[in-house]
Every structure is written in structure tokens, then in C-alpha cells.
Design a protein around this nucleic acid. Sequence first.
RNA 1: GUGGCCAUAGCUCAGUUGGUUAGAGCAUCAGAUUGUGGUUCUGAGGGUCGUCGGUUCGAAACCGAUUGGUCACCCCA
Length: 454
Amino acid sequence: MTKPSLPQGTRDFGPEVVRKRNYIFSCIKNVFELYGFQPLETPAFENLDTLMGKYGAEGDKLIFKILNNGLDNVEKQVQIKEDFEKLLQGKSSKGLTERALRYDLTIPFARYVATNHSQMLFPFKRYQIQPVWRADRPQKGRYREFYQCDVDVVGSNSLLNEIEFCCIYHDVFSQLGIKDYTVTINHRKILIALATICGDADKMSSIASSIDKLEKIGLEKVKEELQTKGFSKKQLDLIEKYLLISGTNEEKLISLTELIGETETGNKGIEEIRKVISEKPKEQNIQLDVTLARGLNYYTGIIFEAKAPEQVKIGSISGGGRYDDLTGLFGVPNIPGVGISFGVDRIYDVMEELNLFPTTVHSGTQVLFFNLGEKESSCAFQLMQELRHKNISCELFHESVKFDKQFKYAEKKNIPYVVIIGSKELEDKTCTIKNLQKGSQENLLQHEIVTYPF
RNA sequence: GUGGCCAUAGCUCAGUUGGUUAGAGCAUCAGAUUGUGGUUCUGAGGGUCGUCGGUUCGAAACCGAUUGGUCACCCCA
């Protein structure tokens, strides 16, 4: 018998942890509902076709594929061997895998909208809280199975949505007690404009993936990387000028206008950023960050990122943006959308590290009835059921053992009250209620227990 | 996918340039305490030193391989 172990990058969640996670989920869910979003769930796995090619080349590699059943079928052996050869050459083969675990919630949502759009009411506002899987190598703050909480609006071009998402960030984080988070925004059109003045709008994602690293590796390294990618001196100068844009949001917008204001796309991007920044909640600090790029290539408008407080070295805890034509990939054009996604597992780590969970999330059983013999415990059982019907959660200790054990059980489970019914109490129809925190106890008639303020 | 570090009791870790029977703290169990927990004291159980091979009179320690964990890179929540 070998010891069983968990697959890499997955975790069990014990009772305490589940309580804390549920606290985060319900908090986020409440905010979503408050803004008029509706719940949606999609299957854990999709057809491989639905997912492939949506996340870029790197993303495709990280999709968890599911091996088809029946590969040991002797009649299909020749075909299967051929398919396997294809796989060895790096091509994906439907003969071996036709399903895969969901990689995010956005693409399954797009698939849902594409298949149901004729019956849907637009704008459609949905939230979705489910696990996703990535065949990544795990490290700190990074798991192979983790939850995402997505909120999206589809069927609306209004910037009102972006402004609402700023409000949602504010509401969620302040309710959870996370204070020093930062929200940064940028606009894909600004990045496209940068690529355009460099002479090649198609180079946008290439430029973006390099400048996204600015904070991490520094200006010189970014320039080096761009140079090896084949950008000219003149282009590098423009990009450097762009990267050096700094100051307040307003100052940045002015510098941006000077640099890319002549392009139509650039101007549009600048105007949209300006509008969102001016209408966001006043007390909220949102920074325009021209280096924010975000990898997912379906974004076309404003993009968001929320980072954990500096002291917790965990980085991004939420991200999102606008996509003009998400369902176009599934043959349904002209349905725009915008959404953001919260990483609950990382938010959990942040809250754990900063000690932000309220003590009330621990509460489970409220009352433990001691088991002091057969007759005593059957009397206790009946009283316990009465309390349960009053919506007070109780337990009766499972066997008649000495006090010591029963007390320790209550203590370890953080149960605040114990009820003692022994031979004495049985005889004069009373029960002893002890408050474990205070150490005080009182004796009352058994029928009075239902009115006791536990 | 690429690279660094680590692996000793249920957990966290000691273990001297290789040398008798591998240790500590915490946790667990029992007793002090037969109707009152947390504290204290006493005692007990618990290990193929990740696995396989090599060097050696002798390996937890040195070498090689392998597996698992972890951190970083790529990328990302």
C-alpha cells in the first residue's frame, strides 16, 4: 500500500478553509447580484475545438486534455496508432482527445452566448463562479485547479459598463477589507496606436508582451528584448518615449495625446480612458498604466488589472477588459462585451496573510450535549432535537466517556456551550449549561432550554 | 517546456570531516484526576532516514539515477 497523494498543483480544503473561501464567494456574489448580474454555470469540460486557438500558442499548451475512452479497441488499432504518430509530431489529434477541461470562464461563456443568442435578452449580464484547470507548473500563488469569479456584460458598447466594473472593484475589495490594492487600466487601442506610429499595427502583441515586463525587468532589458525581436532604432526611440510617460493620470493623458493623438485609434482610446477615470468612484484610486498589456488576445478596448497590496508578493488578483467580437470566433459576429475576473485562491492567500477574515467565519456547532450514560444521553438527544428545530446547531457526544474527553472535544471544535445531563439532572429534570469561554454555568429546568439565549 | 533548492517520527526541524542502539519541540495516547476542559507533572507509542544502485570495514551523511515537493523563468488568476 503506497501512501496516496494529491496531483501536483491541487489542494484539499479542510472545514476551516472552506468556511473562509465561502465567505469570499458570498461577498463577491452579493456585489454581483447588487449590480444586476445573473448566475451561469457551464460544464467542467468542453469540446477541444471550443478551447483550442483561443488563448494563444502558450495557452493551448496549458489546456488539460482528456484522453478518449476506448483507445484499447482492437478494431481501431491502426487508426489510433496513426493518430498517436500525429501527436508525437506536435499536432493535436481528435482521435485521441476530443474533450478538454475548461481553461477559463470567458470562452465557455462566449460559446454559451453563441449557441443561445437568439433567445437571450441583451445586454446580458452574468456572473460565473467555477473552477478552471491549467496544465501549468505550480508555484507560489499558482495552482493547476483554481476558481475564477467572472462577471461580464455582453451586447452593450456603453462605457457605463467599464465604470460599473470600477465600482465593483471598489465594493468587493472594501467589503473584504483589502485596502491597499491597486487597480490599473489601459486601452488596447492605445497599444495599437503605438504599434501604428512604429509603422506596423500588426506588431501590437509583440510590442505589448515586451513592454508588459517593464516593471519586472527594467527599461534596458525591455529595449534589448525588442531589439532582438527586430525593431529598429527609430522604433525603439518611440517606444522608449512611450514607456517614459509618467505623472498623474491627467499628465499621462496629455503626454499620450502628444505621442499618439494623431492616430484615430489612439485618440479614441485616450478619450475612453479619460471618461472612465472621470466617472469612477471618487475615493477610488485607479491608475492609468501605459505598460499594462494583458496576454489574452481577444481584448480590444479598455483593460483592467487589480494587484494585491505590495507587501503580499502575489501580484495580480483580478483582471479583465473589453472584447468587441468574442462570439465571432463561434460564427456569431457583432456581440461586444466587457468583463473582469477575480482570482479567489489568490484573494484567499492575501486575506490569510493580512489576517482579514472576521472571527465569525469559524462558527459551527453552538452547543455540545455531554453523553453521560444510556438514559442520560437519550434525554439529551430529545432536548437537542428541540434546539435544532429552533435553528441552533448542536451535537451529542458520540459515546459515554469521561468529562475530560468531552470537554476537549468541545474546546477543539470551538463550541461555546456544553449542556450536561447526568444522573442528578435526570432525576430532577434539570440540565446544566456551561459557557466555556466565561467558565460560568447555570442549572435550569429541561423545558426551559428552548428559551435559553445561546 | 527550462533551471535552482529540498527530502530524517503525524507536523516543524537538529543530526559535527562518514563511526556503537538516529534525536528535540509540537501533536497523539495513558496516568496523576470515577461530575467539570484550557495549566502543570509523569510515562508511552511512533522511523526501511523518499526509492534504487554505487563507493567504504562501516552511509541518514559521499557519488549516480529515479520519484516527489518547492521556488524561479516562459506565461498567467
